[in-house]
Nucleic acid binder design. Sequence first.
RNA 1: GUCCCCAUCGUCUAGUCCGGCCCAGGACAUCGGCCUUUCACGUCGGUAACACGGGUUCGAAUCCCGUUGGGGACGCCA
Length: 511
Amino acid sequence: MSDDVRVRFAPSPTGYLHIGGARTALFNYLFARHHNGKFILRIEDTDRSRSTDEYIEAIIDGMKWLNLDYDEGPFRQTGRTELYRQYVNRLLEEGRAYYCYCSAEELESKRKLAAAAGKPPRYDGTCRDLKNPAVEIKPVVRFKMPQSGSTVVDDLIKGKIVYENSVFDDFIIMRSDDTPTYNFVVVVDDLEMGITHIIRGDDHLNNTPKQMHIYEAFDHTPPKFAHLPMILGSDKARLSKRHGATSVQAYREMGYLPEALLNYLVRLGWSHSDQEIFSKAELIEKFSLEHVGSSAAVFNPEKLLWMNGEYMKAKSPAELRQFLEFYKANLKLPGFNSSGTAHNIPPAITFSDVKATMPHMTASGTRGPVESNTQMEPINLDKTWEEKAIKTLQERSRTIVELANSMHYYIEEDVAIDEKAGKKFLTSETKPYLTALIERLTALEDFTSKEIEAVFMGLMAEFNVQLGKIAQPARVAITGNTVSPGIFEVIELVGKERTIKRLQKALRSIL
RNA sequence: GUCCCCAUCGUCUAGUCCGGCCCAGGACAUCGGCCUUUCACGUCGGUAACACGGGUUCGAAUCCCGUUGGGGACGCCA
Protein backbone atom coordinates (compact mmCIF):
# COMPACT_ATOMS: atom_id res chain seq x y z
CA MET A 1 0.00 0.00 0.00
CA SER A 2 2.81 2.34 0.79
CA ASP A 3 4.17 2.62 -2.71
CA ASP A 4 0.76 3.67 -3.97
CA VAL A 5 0.93 7.03 -2.27
CA ARG A 6 0.49 9.94 -4.65
CA VAL A 7 0.37 13.49 -3.35
CA ARG A 8 0.52 16.86 -4.94
CA PHE A 9 1.35 20.46 -4.25
CA ALA A 10 -1.03 22.71 -6.16
CA PRO A 11 -0.21 26.39 -5.80
CA SER A 12 -1.98 29.05 -7.81
CA PRO A 13 0.45 31.36 -9.59
CA THR A 14 -1.01 34.59 -8.31
CA GLY A 15 2.09 35.43 -6.34
CA TYR A 16 5.55 34.23 -5.40
CA LEU A 17 6.04 30.99 -3.54
CA HIS A 18 5.41 31.99 0.03
CA ILE A 19 6.33 30.54 3.37
CA GLY A 20 3.00 28.84 3.89
CA GLY A 21 3.02 27.32 0.46
CA ALA A 22 6.55 26.12 0.94
CA ARG A 23 5.57 24.35 4.11
CA THR A 24 2.62 22.69 2.41
CA ALA A 25 4.94 21.59 -0.37
CA LEU A 26 7.43 20.30 2.19
CA PHE A 27 4.85 18.25 4.07
CA ASN A 28 3.62 16.74 0.84
CA TYR A 29 7.17 16.05 -0.22
CA LEU A 30 8.09 14.39 3.06
CA PHE A 31 4.94 12.34 3.09
CA ALA A 32 5.62 11.10 -0.42
CA ARG A 33 9.25 10.30 0.23
CA HIS A 34 8.49 8.63 3.53
CA HIS A 35 5.98 6.33 1.89
CA ASN A 36 8.02 5.87 -1.22
CA GLY A 37 5.27 7.49 -3.20
CA LYS A 38 5.07 10.16 -5.84
CA PHE A 39 5.14 13.91 -5.37
CA ILE A 40 3.46 15.93 -8.08
CA LEU A 41 3.59 19.63 -8.82
CA ARG A 42 0.49 21.10 -10.36
CA ILE A 43 -0.04 24.75 -11.09
CA GLU A 44 -3.62 25.86 -10.51
CA ASP A 45 -3.92 28.49 -13.18
CA THR A 46 -7.59 28.37 -14.00
CA ASP A 47 -7.80 32.00 -13.07
CA ARG A 48 -6.46 33.31 -16.33
CA SER A 49 -6.56 36.94 -15.28
CA ARG A 50 -4.46 36.74 -12.15
CA SER A 51 -2.04 34.00 -13.09
CA THR A 52 1.20 35.05 -14.66
CA ASP A 53 4.08 33.19 -16.21
CA GLU A 54 6.44 35.15 -14.06
CA TYR A 55 4.88 33.69 -10.94
CA ILE A 56 4.86 30.20 -12.35
CA GLU A 57 8.55 30.60 -12.99
CA ALA A 58 9.10 31.94 -9.49
CA ILE A 59 7.29 29.04 -7.88
CA ILE A 60 9.32 26.52 -9.82
CA ASP A 61 12.50 28.40 -8.98
CA GLY A 62 11.57 28.41 -5.33
CA MET A 63 10.92 24.68 -5.34
CA LYS A 64 14.24 24.13 -7.02
CA TRP A 65 16.10 26.27 -4.55
CA LEU A 66 14.47 24.47 -1.65
CA ASN A 67 15.39 21.21 -3.27
CA LEU A 68 11.86 19.90 -3.19
CA ASP A 69 12.10 17.75 -6.26
CA TYR A 70 8.88 16.48 -7.74
CA ASP A 71 8.37 13.27 -9.64
CA GLU A 72 5.72 14.53 -12.03
CA GLY A 73 4.85 17.92 -13.39
CA PRO A 74 4.73 20.80 -13.34
CA PHE A 75 1.28 20.35 -14.79
CA ARG A 76 -0.88 23.25 -15.82
CA GLN A 77 -4.59 23.46 -16.32
CA THR A 78 -4.77 25.73 -19.28
CA GLY A 79 -5.53 23.72 -22.38
CA ARG A 80 -7.40 21.06 -20.47
CA THR A 81 -10.80 22.70 -20.68
CA GLU A 82 -12.03 20.06 -23.11
CA LEU A 83 -11.40 17.41 -20.50
CA TYR A 84 -13.24 19.38 -17.84
CA ARG A 85 -16.09 19.96 -20.27
CA GLN A 86 -16.48 16.21 -20.70
CA TYR A 87 -16.70 15.69 -16.97
CA VAL A 88 -19.28 18.44 -16.67
CA ASN A 89 -21.35 16.92 -19.47
CA ARG A 90 -21.39 13.60 -17.72
CA LEU A 91 -22.80 15.22 -14.63
CA LEU A 92 -25.33 17.10 -16.71
CA GLU A 93 -26.48 13.92 -18.45
CA GLU A 94 -26.87 12.09 -15.19
CA GLY A 95 -28.84 14.91 -13.69
CA ARG A 96 -26.18 15.61 -11.06
CA ALA A 97 -25.73 19.12 -12.36
CA TYR A 98 -27.90 21.66 -14.12
CA TYR A 99 -27.84 24.91 -16.03
CA CYS A 100 -28.53 28.04 -14.06
CA TYR A 101 -29.68 31.21 -15.76
CA CYS A 102 -29.62 33.56 -12.83
CA SER A 103 -27.59 36.68 -13.47
CA ALA A 104 -24.71 37.74 -11.31
CA GLU A 105 -26.71 40.78 -10.20
CA GLU A 106 -29.67 38.71 -9.11
CA LEU A 107 -27.39 36.43 -7.11
CA GLU A 108 -25.69 39.32 -5.48
CA SER A 109 -28.93 40.79 -4.24
CA LYS A 110 -30.05 37.38 -3.01
CA ARG A 111 -26.85 37.05 -1.03
CA LYS A 112 -27.38 40.42 0.54
CA LEU A 113 -30.93 39.55 1.43
CA ALA A 114 -29.88 36.32 3.07
CA ALA A 115 -27.16 38.02 5.05
CA ALA A 116 -29.61 40.65 6.26
CA ALA A 117 -31.99 37.94 7.39
CA GLY A 118 -29.19 36.27 9.34
CA LYS A 119 -29.06 33.32 7.00
CA PRO A 120 -26.03 31.87 5.30
CA PRO A 121 -25.68 33.49 1.89
CA ARG A 122 -26.45 30.56 -0.33
CA TYR A 123 -27.96 30.00 -3.72
CA ASP A 124 -31.67 29.29 -3.42
CA GLY A 125 -31.92 26.70 -6.15
CA THR A 126 -34.13 28.72 -8.47
CA CYS A 127 -32.97 26.92 -11.60
CA ARG A 128 -32.63 23.47 -10.05
CA ASP A 129 -35.77 22.10 -11.64
CA LEU A 130 -36.21 24.69 -14.32
CA LYS A 131 -38.22 23.41 -17.29
CA ASN A 132 -38.19 26.35 -19.69
CA PRO A 133 -34.78 27.97 -19.74
CA ALA A 134 -34.38 31.61 -20.67
CA VAL A 135 -32.22 30.92 -23.70
CA GLU A 136 -30.96 34.42 -24.28
CA ILE A 137 -28.79 34.17 -21.17
CA LYS A 138 -25.56 32.24 -21.25
CA PRO A 139 -25.95 29.84 -18.31
CA VAL A 140 -23.52 28.53 -15.71
CA VAL A 141 -23.51 24.94 -14.54
CA ARG A 142 -24.29 24.16 -10.93
CA PHE A 143 -23.66 20.95 -9.06
CA LYS A 144 -26.56 19.41 -7.14
CA MET A 145 -25.62 19.09 -3.53
CA PRO A 146 -27.70 16.91 -1.22
CA GLN A 147 -30.30 18.97 0.61
CA SER A 148 -30.70 16.86 3.71
CA GLY A 149 -28.64 14.60 5.88
CA SER A 150 -25.01 15.28 6.72
CA THR A 151 -21.55 14.90 5.30
CA VAL A 152 -18.63 13.64 7.34
CA VAL A 153 -15.07 14.60 6.58
CA ASP A 154 -12.66 12.29 8.32
CA ASP A 155 -9.53 14.41 8.33
CA LEU A 156 -6.18 12.85 9.12
CA ILE A 157 -5.23 15.85 11.22
CA LYS A 158 -8.47 17.40 12.45
CA GLY A 159 -10.45 14.23 12.99
CA LYS A 160 -14.11 13.74 12.17
CA ILE A 161 -15.99 16.85 11.11
CA VAL A 162 -19.72 16.75 10.53
CA TYR A 163 -21.46 19.19 8.20
CA GLU A 164 -25.22 19.49 7.96
CA ASN A 165 -26.02 19.32 4.27
CA SER A 166 -28.53 22.08 4.72
CA VAL A 167 -25.66 24.57 4.91
CA PHE A 168 -24.57 23.83 1.36
CA ASP A 169 -25.89 25.30 -1.82
CA ASP A 170 -25.59 24.18 -5.41
CA PHE A 171 -22.28 25.73 -6.30
CA ILE A 172 -21.08 26.68 -9.74
CA ILE A 173 -18.77 24.21 -11.44
CA MET A 174 -18.62 25.89 -14.83
CA ARG A 175 -18.77 29.56 -15.59
CA SER A 176 -20.85 31.10 -18.33
CA ASP A 177 -17.69 31.43 -20.41
CA ASP A 178 -17.29 27.65 -20.30
CA THR A 179 -14.33 27.64 -17.93
CA PRO A 180 -14.56 25.35 -14.91
CA THR A 181 -14.21 26.60 -11.35
CA TYR A 182 -11.69 25.60 -8.74
CA ASN A 183 -13.77 23.23 -6.63
CA PHE A 184 -14.57 21.22 -9.70
CA VAL A 185 -11.18 21.30 -11.34
CA VAL A 186 -9.27 20.12 -8.28
CA VAL A 187 -11.45 17.08 -8.07
CA VAL A 188 -11.11 16.23 -11.74
CA ASP A 189 -7.37 16.74 -11.67
CA ASP A 190 -6.84 14.83 -8.46
CA LEU A 191 -8.95 12.06 -9.80
CA GLU A 192 -7.15 12.00 -13.14
CA MET A 193 -3.80 12.03 -11.44
CA GLY A 194 -4.72 9.34 -8.99
CA ILE A 195 -4.02 11.43 -5.93
CA THR A 196 -4.39 9.36 -2.77
CA HIS A 197 -3.81 11.98 -0.08
CA ILE A 198 -4.62 15.63 -0.17
CA ILE A 199 -2.41 17.58 2.17
CA ARG A 200 -3.20 21.29 2.10
CA GLY A 201 -3.85 24.32 4.27
CA ASP A 202 -6.90 24.23 6.49
CA ASP A 203 -8.33 27.23 4.69
CA HIS A 204 -9.58 24.52 2.33
CA LEU A 205 -11.33 22.57 5.03
CA ASN A 206 -14.77 23.91 4.22
CA ASN A 207 -14.35 23.09 0.55
CA THR A 208 -13.83 19.46 1.36
CA PRO A 209 -17.45 18.30 1.73
CA LYS A 210 -18.30 19.90 -1.60
CA GLN A 211 -15.44 18.14 -3.28
CA MET A 212 -16.34 14.85 -1.64
CA HIS A 213 -19.74 14.94 -3.26
CA ILE A 214 -18.20 15.49 -6.65
CA TYR A 215 -16.03 12.44 -6.16
CA GLU A 216 -19.13 10.51 -5.28
CA ALA A 217 -20.96 11.78 -8.32
CA PHE A 218 -18.14 10.26 -10.36
CA ASP A 219 -18.41 7.01 -8.40
CA HIS A 220 -15.10 7.57 -6.75
CA THR A 221 -14.11 7.21 -3.13
CA PRO A 222 -12.53 10.50 -2.14
CA PRO A 223 -8.84 10.48 -1.25
CA LYS A 224 -7.69 10.95 2.34
CA PHE A 225 -7.61 14.51 3.50
CA ALA A 226 -5.11 16.16 5.83
CA HIS A 227 -5.61 19.83 6.57
CA LEU A 228 -2.60 21.68 7.86
CA PRO A 229 -3.04 24.52 10.34
CA MET A 230 -2.17 27.98 9.07
CA ILE A 231 0.93 30.02 9.68
CA LEU A 232 0.21 33.35 11.34
CA GLY A 233 2.13 36.58 11.81
CA SER A 234 3.26 37.92 15.17
CA ASP A 235 -0.16 39.51 15.73
CA LYS A 236 -1.81 36.15 15.10
CA ALA A 237 -3.35 37.37 11.89
CA ARG A 238 -2.83 35.46 8.71
CA LEU A 239 0.75 35.89 7.55
CA SER A 240 1.03 38.70 5.03
CA LYS A 241 3.47 41.21 3.60
CA ARG A 242 3.01 43.60 6.44
CA HIS A 243 4.60 41.04 8.73
CA GLY A 244 7.76 41.43 6.71
CA ALA A 245 9.18 39.03 4.19
CA THR A 246 6.84 36.21 3.25
CA SER A 247 8.20 34.89 0.00
CA VAL A 248 10.75 32.16 -0.19
CA GLN A 249 12.65 34.32 -2.62
CA ALA A 250 12.99 37.05 -0.02
CA TYR A 251 14.57 34.65 2.43
CA ARG A 252 16.98 33.52 -0.20
CA GLU A 253 17.99 37.11 -0.78
CA MET A 254 18.39 37.73 2.92
CA GLY A 255 20.99 35.02 3.06
CA TYR A 256 19.11 32.07 4.39
CA LEU A 257 20.11 28.53 3.58
CA PRO A 258 17.37 26.37 2.02
CA GLU A 259 17.89 23.51 4.44
CA ALA A 260 17.56 25.86 7.38
CA LEU A 261 14.35 27.38 6.07
CA LEU A 262 12.92 23.92 5.52
CA ASN A 263 14.00 22.76 8.94
CA TYR A 264 12.40 25.78 10.53
CA LEU A 265 9.23 25.34 8.53
CA VAL A 266 8.82 21.69 9.36
CA ARG A 267 8.80 22.55 13.05
CA LEU A 268 5.85 24.81 12.48
CA GLY A 269 3.24 22.22 13.12
CA TRP A 270 5.24 19.05 13.17
CA SER A 271 7.40 17.68 15.93
CA HIS A 272 9.40 14.67 16.87
CA SER A 273 9.64 14.93 20.66
CA ASP A 274 12.31 17.46 21.58
CA GLN A 275 14.39 17.41 18.45
CA GLU A 276 14.92 20.68 16.61
CA ILE A 277 17.51 20.01 13.94
CA PHE A 278 16.84 17.37 11.35
CA SER A 279 18.72 16.31 8.28
CA LYS A 280 16.60 15.73 5.23
CA ALA A 281 17.06 11.99 5.52
CA GLU A 282 15.89 12.13 9.10
CA LEU A 283 12.84 14.12 8.14
CA ILE A 284 11.90 11.63 5.48
CA GLU A 285 12.38 8.80 7.90
CA LYS A 286 10.52 10.36 10.80
CA PHE A 287 7.80 12.42 9.21
CA SER A 288 4.26 11.36 9.85
CA LEU A 289 0.92 13.11 9.71
CA GLU A 290 0.05 11.82 13.18
CA HIS A 291 2.53 14.22 14.67
CA VAL A 292 1.24 17.26 12.91
CA GLY A 293 -0.46 19.54 15.42
CA SER A 294 -3.87 21.01 14.85
CA SER A 295 -3.43 24.59 15.98
CA ALA A 296 -2.08 27.50 13.98
CA ALA A 297 1.54 28.59 14.45
CA VAL A 298 3.07 32.04 14.65
CA PHE A 299 6.04 32.56 12.37
CA ASN A 300 9.05 33.55 14.43
CA PRO A 301 11.91 35.08 12.42
CA GLU A 302 14.26 35.04 15.40
CA LYS A 303 14.18 31.30 15.68
CA LEU A 304 14.67 30.97 11.95
CA LEU A 305 17.72 33.18 12.26
CA TRP A 306 19.08 30.99 15.03
CA MET A 307 18.47 27.88 13.03
CA ASN A 308 20.15 29.34 9.99
CA GLY A 309 23.18 30.07 12.15
CA GLU A 310 23.31 26.43 13.13
CA TYR A 311 23.35 25.43 9.49
CA MET A 312 25.99 28.06 8.73
CA LYS A 313 28.27 26.41 11.24
CA ALA A 314 27.63 22.95 9.89
CA LYS A 315 28.25 23.72 6.23
CA SER A 316 31.61 23.21 4.62
CA PRO A 317 33.41 26.37 3.50
CA ALA A 318 33.26 25.10 -0.06
CA GLU A 319 29.48 24.87 0.03
CA LEU A 320 29.22 28.27 1.61
CA ARG A 321 31.38 29.71 -1.12
CA GLN A 322 28.87 28.41 -3.64
CA PHE A 323 26.08 30.24 -1.88
CA LEU A 324 28.18 33.36 -1.72
CA GLU A 325 28.36 33.45 -5.48
CA PHE A 326 24.67 34.22 -5.62
CA TYR A 327 25.13 37.31 -3.54
CA LYS A 328 28.16 38.46 -5.42
CA ALA A 329 26.01 38.50 -8.50
CA ASN A 330 22.89 39.95 -6.99
CA LEU A 331 24.00 42.30 -4.28
CA LYS A 332 26.18 45.31 -4.39
CA LEU A 333 28.57 44.08 -1.81
CA PRO A 334 31.49 46.22 -0.88
CA GLY A 335 34.56 44.40 -2.01
CA PHE A 336 32.85 42.35 -4.65
CA ASN A 337 32.99 43.56 -8.15
CA SER A 338 29.57 42.82 -9.48
CA SER A 339 30.59 41.17 -12.67
CA GLY A 340 28.82 37.95 -11.78
CA THR A 341 26.34 36.50 -14.17
CA ALA A 342 22.92 38.02 -13.89
CA HIS A 343 20.45 35.61 -12.38
CA ASN A 344 16.82 35.78 -13.24
CA ILE A 345 16.21 37.29 -9.87
CA PRO A 346 14.08 40.39 -9.44
CA PRO A 347 15.73 43.67 -8.55
CA ALA A 348 18.83 43.19 -6.50
CA ILE A 349 18.15 44.14 -2.95
CA THR A 350 20.40 46.46 -1.10
CA PHE A 351 21.59 46.24 2.43
CA SER A 352 19.20 48.86 3.57
CA ASP A 353 16.38 46.70 2.27
CA VAL A 354 17.67 43.81 4.26
CA LYS A 355 17.91 46.01 7.29
CA ALA A 356 14.36 47.18 6.84
CA THR A 357 12.85 43.77 6.46
CA MET A 358 14.86 42.19 9.22
CA PRO A 359 15.01 44.68 12.06
CA HIS A 360 16.72 42.23 14.36
CA MET A 361 19.68 42.06 12.07
CA THR A 362 20.96 45.30 13.39
CA ALA A 363 20.76 44.08 16.95
CA SER A 364 23.91 44.16 19.01
CA GLY A 365 26.58 41.82 17.87
CA THR A 366 25.53 42.04 14.30
CA ARG A 367 27.62 44.02 11.97
CA GLY A 368 25.59 46.47 10.06
CA PRO A 369 26.00 47.32 6.46
CA VAL A 370 29.08 49.06 5.29
CA GLU A 371 27.95 52.32 3.88
CA SER A 372 30.98 53.21 1.85
CA ASN A 373 30.67 52.74 -1.82
CA THR A 374 34.35 52.75 -2.39
CA GLN A 375 35.39 51.69 -5.81
CA MET A 376 38.33 49.42 -5.37
CA GLU A 377 40.45 47.27 -7.60
CA PRO A 378 38.71 44.02 -8.33
CA ILE A 379 40.51 41.35 -6.42
CA ASN A 380 40.89 38.00 -7.95
CA LEU A 381 39.73 35.66 -5.26
CA ASP A 382 41.69 32.50 -4.85
CA LYS A 383 39.34 29.66 -3.97
CA THR A 384 41.52 28.18 -1.29
CA TRP A 385 42.11 31.55 0.24
CA GLU A 386 38.42 32.41 0.07
CA GLU A 387 37.40 29.20 1.75
CA LYS A 388 39.92 29.81 4.47
CA ALA A 389 38.41 33.21 5.01
CA ILE A 390 34.91 31.76 5.06
CA LYS A 391 35.98 29.22 7.62
CA THR A 392 36.97 31.93 10.05
CA LEU A 393 33.66 33.68 9.58
CA GLN A 394 31.04 30.99 9.25
CA GLU A 395 30.59 30.19 12.90
CA ARG A 396 29.90 33.81 13.69
CA SER A 397 27.59 34.49 10.78
CA ARG A 398 23.95 33.66 10.98
CA THR A 399 23.21 34.31 7.34
CA ILE A 400 25.12 34.34 4.09
CA VAL A 401 24.55 38.08 3.93
CA GLU A 402 26.21 38.52 7.30
CA LEU A 403 29.05 36.38 6.09
CA ALA A 404 29.40 38.37 2.90
CA ASN A 405 29.25 41.54 4.89
CA SER A 406 32.10 40.47 7.13
CA MET A 407 34.23 39.45 4.20
CA HIS A 408 34.87 43.05 3.30
CA TYR A 409 37.97 43.50 5.41
CA TYR A 410 39.55 40.44 3.86
CA ILE A 411 38.85 41.58 0.36
CA GLU A 412 39.05 45.34 0.25
CA GLU A 413 42.29 47.14 -0.12
CA ASP A 414 41.51 49.45 2.73
CA VAL A 415 39.02 49.60 5.57
CA ALA A 416 37.04 52.42 7.08
CA ILE A 417 37.59 52.57 10.78
CA ASP A 418 34.54 52.69 12.97
CA GLU A 419 34.60 56.00 14.76
CA LYS A 420 33.78 54.71 18.21
CA ALA A 421 36.18 51.82 17.95
CA GLY A 422 38.96 54.08 16.74
CA LYS A 423 38.44 56.51 19.52
CA LYS A 424 38.63 53.80 22.10
CA PHE A 425 41.52 51.72 20.83
CA LEU A 426 43.65 53.92 18.61
CA THR A 427 45.09 56.15 21.30
CA SER A 428 48.41 57.44 22.46
CA GLU A 429 48.44 54.59 24.94
CA THR A 430 48.25 51.93 22.27
CA LYS A 431 50.52 53.74 19.85
CA PRO A 432 53.72 52.08 21.02
CA TYR A 433 52.18 48.64 20.62
CA LEU A 434 51.18 49.34 17.06
CA THR A 435 54.55 50.80 16.24
CA ALA A 436 56.28 47.74 17.57
CA LEU A 437 53.84 45.46 15.83
CA ILE A 438 54.54 47.04 12.47
CA GLU A 439 58.21 46.59 13.03
CA ARG A 440 57.98 42.92 13.91
CA LEU A 441 55.50 42.02 11.23
CA THR A 442 57.59 43.74 8.62
CA ALA A 443 60.48 41.60 9.64
CA LEU A 444 58.43 38.45 9.60
CA GLU A 445 59.37 36.09 6.78
CA ASP A 446 56.91 33.32 7.34
CA PHE A 447 53.60 35.20 7.43
CA THR A 448 51.45 32.51 9.03
CA SER A 449 49.06 32.76 11.93
CA LYS A 450 51.42 30.67 13.99
CA GLU A 451 54.32 33.01 13.48
CA ILE A 452 52.08 36.03 13.86
CA GLU A 453 50.93 34.70 17.20
CA ALA A 454 54.54 34.40 18.28
CA VAL A 455 55.03 38.04 17.44
CA PHE A 456 52.15 39.02 19.67
CA MET A 457 53.43 36.80 22.45
CA GLY A 458 56.77 38.46 22.27
CA LEU A 459 55.18 41.89 22.44
CA MET A 460 53.07 40.90 25.42
CA ALA A 461 56.11 39.86 27.34
CA GLU A 462 58.04 42.93 26.32
CA PHE A 463 55.39 45.44 27.31
CA ASN A 464 54.12 43.26 30.10
CA VAL A 465 50.50 43.60 29.06
CA GLN A 466 47.60 41.32 28.32
CA LEU A 467 46.97 40.19 24.79
CA GLY A 468 43.82 42.30 24.57
CA LYS A 469 45.81 45.45 24.96
CA ILE A 470 47.61 44.80 21.72
CA ALA A 471 45.10 42.68 19.86
CA GLN A 472 42.16 45.04 20.07
CA PRO A 473 43.93 48.08 18.60
CA ALA A 474 45.34 45.85 15.90
CA ARG A 475 41.90 44.45 15.21
CA VAL A 476 40.44 47.91 14.88
CA ALA A 477 43.24 49.02 12.58
CA ILE A 478 43.00 45.97 10.38
CA THR A 479 39.28 45.20 10.31
CA GLY A 480 37.91 48.61 11.18
CA ASN A 481 35.95 47.24 14.09
CA THR A 482 36.16 45.50 17.44
CA VAL A 483 34.66 42.23 16.35
CA SER A 484 36.36 39.73 14.09
CA PRO A 485 37.70 36.19 14.04
CA GLY A 486 40.95 35.43 15.84
CA ILE A 487 43.31 38.25 15.04
CA PHE A 488 46.26 36.04 14.05
CA GLU A 489 44.21 34.33 11.39
CA VAL A 490 42.77 37.59 10.20
CA ILE A 491 46.24 39.03 9.76
CA GLU A 492 47.42 36.01 7.85
CA LEU A 493 44.45 36.21 5.50
CA VAL A 494 44.72 39.95 4.99
CA GLY A 495 48.35 39.42 4.16
CA LYS A 496 51.53 41.21 5.03
CA GLU A 497 51.32 44.15 2.72
CA ARG A 498 47.80 45.24 3.48
CA THR A 499 48.17 44.54 7.20
CA ILE A 500 51.12 46.82 7.49
CA LYS A 501 49.54 49.46 5.35
CA ARG A 502 46.45 49.50 7.54
CA LEU A 503 48.47 49.57 10.74
CA GLN A 504 50.47 52.50 9.47
CA LYS A 505 47.38 54.35 8.47
CA ALA A 506 45.89 53.80 11.90
CA LEU A 507 49.07 55.03 13.46
CA ARG A 508 48.92 58.21 11.44
CA SER A 509 45.35 58.80 12.56
CA ILE A 510 46.52 58.94 16.14
CA LEU A 511 48.80 61.88 15.52
C1' G B 1 -24.41 37.28 10.18
C1' U B 2 -23.99 31.63 9.17
C1' C B 3 -20.84 27.39 9.25
C1' C B 4 -16.07 25.16 10.37
C1' C B 5 -11.39 24.81 12.99
C1' C B 6 -8.25 25.94 17.17
C1' A B 7 -6.73 27.02 22.55
C1' U B 8 0.28 24.39 27.26
C1' C B 9 5.90 29.64 28.86
C1' G B 10 6.38 36.12 24.74
C1' U B 11 7.12 32.38 20.35
C1' C B 12 7.70 27.07 18.32
C1' U B 13 6.45 22.79 20.84
C1' A B 14 6.58 17.66 24.21
C1' G B 15 2.84 15.58 27.05
C1' U B 16 -3.62 14.93 25.28
C1' C B 17 -5.68 9.48 21.39
C1' C B 18 -4.98 4.72 25.86
C1' G B 19 -6.54 10.07 32.68
C1' G B 20 -1.93 9.09 37.77
C1' C B 21 5.35 8.80 35.83
C1' C B 22 3.69 16.57 34.85
C1' C B 23 3.19 21.46 41.45
C1' A B 24 4.32 20.34 33.22
C1' G B 25 9.87 18.78 29.57
C1' G B 26 12.82 20.87 25.30
C1' A B 27 13.99 24.95 21.80
C1' C B 28 14.13 30.39 20.31
C1' A B 29 14.18 35.02 22.72
C1' U B 30 15.33 37.29 27.50
C1' C B 31 18.12 37.86 32.30
C1' G B 32 22.44 36.44 35.33
C1' G B 33 27.06 33.59 36.44
C1' C B 34 31.41 30.93 34.50
C1' C B 35 35.30 30.22 30.89
C1' U B 36 39.04 33.13 28.16
C1' U B 37 46.60 35.11 26.03
C1' U B 38 42.28 39.06 21.48
C1' C B 39 36.58 39.63 19.45
C1' A B 40 33.45 35.99 19.40
C1' C B 41 32.11 31.04 20.48
C1' G B 42 30.98 28.00 24.40
C1' U B 43 28.98 26.63 29.01
C1' C B 44 25.96 26.69 33.57
C1' G B 45 21.73 28.60 35.76
C1' G B 46 17.16 31.92 36.37
C1' U B 47 12.29 34.19 34.96
C1' A B 48 8.16 32.29 32.26
C1' A B 49 2.46 28.34 30.43
C1' C B 50 -1.93 23.91 31.01
C1' A B 51 -7.60 30.63 28.64
C1' C B 52 -12.03 30.59 32.08
C1' G B 53 -16.29 28.02 34.36
C1' G B 54 -18.83 23.71 35.27
C1' G B 55 -18.94 18.50 35.34
C1' U B 56 -17.07 12.90 35.20
C1' U B 57 -13.33 10.49 38.43
C1' C B 58 -10.05 8.28 44.23
C1' G B 59 -7.24 11.33 40.68
C1' A B 60 -7.61 15.79 34.65
C1' A B 61 -3.06 19.68 30.96
C1' U B 62 -5.20 15.02 29.39
C1' C B 63 -12.44 12.91 28.97
C1' C B 64 -17.54 15.76 28.50
C1' C B 65 -20.43 20.46 28.34
C1' G B 66 -20.46 25.64 28.25
C1' U B 67 -18.10 30.56 28.03
C1' U B 68 -14.42 33.61 26.19
C1' G B 69 -10.69 34.51 22.79
C1' G B 70 -8.24 33.66 18.07
C1' G B 71 -8.28 31.88 13.05
C1' G B 72 -10.68 30.23 8.56
C1' A B 73 -14.68 29.64 4.96
C1' C B 74 -19.03 31.49 2.96
C1' G B 75 -17.54 34.42 -5.15
C1' C B 76 -19.21 33.07 -12.54
C1' C B 77 -11.09 33.60 -6.75
C1' A B 78 -8.02 29.65 -6.00
